[in-house]
Design a protein around this nucleic acid. Structure first.
Lengths: 238, 238
DNA sequence: TCAGGAAAATATGTATACGAATATGGGAGA
DNA sequence: TCTCCCATATTCGTATACATATTTTCCTGA
């Protein structure tokens, strides 16, 4: 079934910590583990049938990618990025995804274009039905684009930023509105396929800005916790 | 001496794996450990007086940052980035350091400008005397700029890329030529201080392009190992 | 009833031990 | 002498055990 051999042994062969890492990552991005959730090594290991050693490795990796916070002697919990973190992440994304577009202009094969179109098609399919996979696919579109550049560092960073963006969205974003994303993705593919560098760059910038706005929507209505408390304090004359 | 307490206990308090991580990282960036050097967990642990557990954590982290390569059941060795890796790394640096400049324009306090000038001064001092620290300081200038943006993600990525750039330079770059770097850094500070966005952006792009050229110099004269071998094979009629 | 604190329980940090995979070296056979 | 293969040794992957830090609980005293 796979290149390296039988399917049965594969999972056990490719290192357990990797499996735990992926499981935790998916759980976080699916919001099965909400932001701030404590992640005790013992429980996770017991639950997944591995030792703490393995869990620890996975947690260290997730910490490196900013998906969890890891405070000494206090254990791990799902990251709760601040609004400023959100702004920073999207600012970097804007730069890097511009580089993605720039790297891809005039270099996409017909087959790659079909691949992108197929992905957007899948996004469209999931648009109304399945909200969860819809969000996931929207993010993976950007990851796919980044991977097509064959720039490993670029694609690693974009992947990481997209993951963290999901967290931001779950914390501060509006419920969900993937409709525009799909059409924006389509327009971007068209511009890329036509080799229109300026148009593609402008579309990507606009697209990321749109995501940023949606993701950080609550920044105007809802305050950070400390500020929220301060407001109440003022009302009580404290 | 430090914020968190007495100096004596500090080192033992802030986790051993962090210390090992920093030691190995410095050793790699100082080229005390040449690219490709094997890094057996046992030896390192014995040498540094810690258990393999700690060394493993440090190695995993270095692997995440691309400074070492970690192949299953084969152990770790100092990374040997390819020329393509080099091109990719500098391409991403170009984008991100442009964002650094953009973030800093019009936002540098007089004190921060003095800090930057002091750093370049130090670069100038080490220019002729100490080649090793000269290289190090040149890289740290970019790290310092990135940190001044107060964008944690941006500064983390730039730091990582600067580290990996050092590796690239040690593999493919010409011996050393920091003279131009110093003057270019000075010009950049001036443009930043004056708030001249276009000038600063252009300077940074030019500066990174210059570094890229110097770093990947051997790309024209010296081939990759496989290509090199292929050339010999052709000569022998193989 | 509530505040303070000590002891127990829990969780993390680190070391060690054992099993598995890979690299190494030597001997048998051609 | 060279090649192939098996035994040995080294190194990595993982689990477990012990040490240390933190959280919780519950008791004491005001």
């Amino acid at each position: 079934m796979t290149a390296d051999g039988h399917d049965k042994t594969r999972k056990s062969t490719v290192s357990k910590s990797d499996a735990v890492y992926r499981a935790l990552k998916r759980a976080i991005l699916d919001q099965a583990l909400a932001a701030g959730t404590k992640l005790p090594e013992d429980s996770i290991g017991e639950r997944l049938g591995v030792s703490r050693t393995i869990v620890r490795q996975a947690l260290a990796r997730l910490n490196g990618e900013g998906l969890i916070e890891l405070r000494p002697h206090k254990g791990a919990c799902v990251a709760q990025p601040s609004l400023e973190d959100g702004r920073n992440i999207f600012a970097v994304r804007r730069s890097l995804e511009a580089l993605v577009v720039d790297s891809l202009i005039g270099k996409l094969s017909p087959q790659q274009i079909r691949q992108l179109e197929a992905h957007v098609e899948a996004e469209d399919m999931a648009r109304a039905n399945d909200t969860a996979t819809s969000i996931q696919l929207a993010g993976e579109f950007h990851v796919l684009l980044a991977k097509l550049t064959e720039n490993d560092i670029l694609s690693r960073y974009v992947t990481e930023l997209v993951s963290r963006s999901s967290l931001i969205l779950s914390l501060y974003g509006r419920p969900h509105s993937p409709d525009c994303a799909v059409s924006e993705h389509r327009e971007l593919i068209t511009a890329l396929a036509r080799g229109d560098r300026d148009k593609a760059g402008a579309l990507m910038h606009h697209h990321i800005d749109a995501i940023t706005t949606r993701a950080l929507l609550k920044s105007q209505t809802e305050k950070d916790f400390p500020d929220l408390l301060a407001a109440y304090a003022r009302e009580e004359g404290l």
